[in-house]
Simulated assay, not measured.
Amino acid sequence: MKDNFSSQSDLYAKYRPHYPKEFFEYLISVVKNKDIAWDCGTGNGQVAKELSKIFSNVYATDISASQLNQTIQAENIEYSLQPAEKTNFVENRFDCITIAQAIHWFDFDLFYKEVMRTAKKKALIAAIGYGRIQISEDLDRIIDDFYFNVIGNFWDKERKYIDEHYKTIPFPFKEIKTPEFKIECNWNEEQLIGYLNTWSAVKHFTKLNGRNPVIEFQSLMKPFFENQKERKVSFQLLLRMGFVT
């Protein structure tokens, strides 16, 4: 598993979008037992916190110590520094396993072997993510140009799974058809800039070129915030769900 998010973990915690409550309501309706959940690649614990409202106990893991230092705390969440592909969890432990905006970084074969080992029979597994930001036709065109033409060569190869809406990720489980969900929120210019600065390709570009491309790009976005301080932004939720057999 790659670690692209230890640096600037404070930005990641502050500017990454939150998953919609409708998704968690759906998860509640689907999961069979609500005893123990594992949130794998937890980052700042955003999903783990929501799971803690559903499950009696939540175990949340990540390979980034700096991300774990930013986590949202709850009495029934236990965070630990562990790779997705090899944990110290006992066999047949979990009723639900979630992976939010992280599974594309994993070694699929090794991770799924660990899922099979640690999940109870008929446990739910949910690979969750979100696609490119959508705001308006004109602004989306500018952001897409930045995404593909300015920093396009600096994305890790695994980013393709996001662009392919998680449809090409191997998923060896009894998959279920899910509703479509969207992340929707209102952001000001500072929030949008902050989010763009969390992109791994921006970090790679900056490291290689010694300058942050978002700073140059910011001037192109300013006109879109002159007449309104906030803009409605949305992200398509990427979702693969199924049961361990």
Rank of each mutant, 00 (worst) to 15 (best):
H204W: 13
E164G: 04
V150R: 01
K21V: 14
K232E: 06
Y26C: 02
F146T: 11
I176Q: 02
S219I: 15
I99V: 14
S200T: 08
I36H: 04
E114D: 08
F24Y: 08
E189Y: 15
N149G: 06
E175L: 02
F173R: 01
F148A: 10
K182M: 13
D10K: 12
A127M: 06
T168W: 05
I215D: 13
S64K: 02
A65S: 14
G210T: 06
Y112S: 04
N4C: 13
F55N: 00
E180A: 08
G242N: 06
D3A: 01
G45M: 07
N4Q: 11
E184T: 07
V150T: 13
K49H: 11
E75D: 12
Q236A: 14
L237Y: 09
I63K: 05
K182R: 13
V202E: 01
M221I: 11
F5M: 02
E78S: 13
F55Y: 09
G41P: 05
K203M: 13
I193T: 08
E158G: 13
K174G: 13
E78Y: 12
A119R: 00
T245P: 15
L238I: 03
I63Y: 10
D145P: 03
L124M: 11
K207C: 13
L11R: 13
L81H: 09
R141V: 11
L81T: 03
A37P: 02
Y166V: 01
F55D: 00
E164F: 11
L208Y: 07
A74E: 05
P17G: 03
C96M: 05
D138R: 11
D39C: 00
V202Q: 01
T87Q: 02
D140Y: 03
K121H: 10
D144P: 00
S9F: 00
K182I: 10
R240E: 06
D144T: 14
Y195F: 12
D62C: 00
R231D: 11
S29C: 11
V244N: 09
I169T: 03
N57H: 15
E22D: 10
G210L: 06
F146S: 07
L239S: 02
E190Y: 03
Q82D: 05
T71Y: 04
K222E: 15
N92D: 12
K157S: 14
E230P: 02
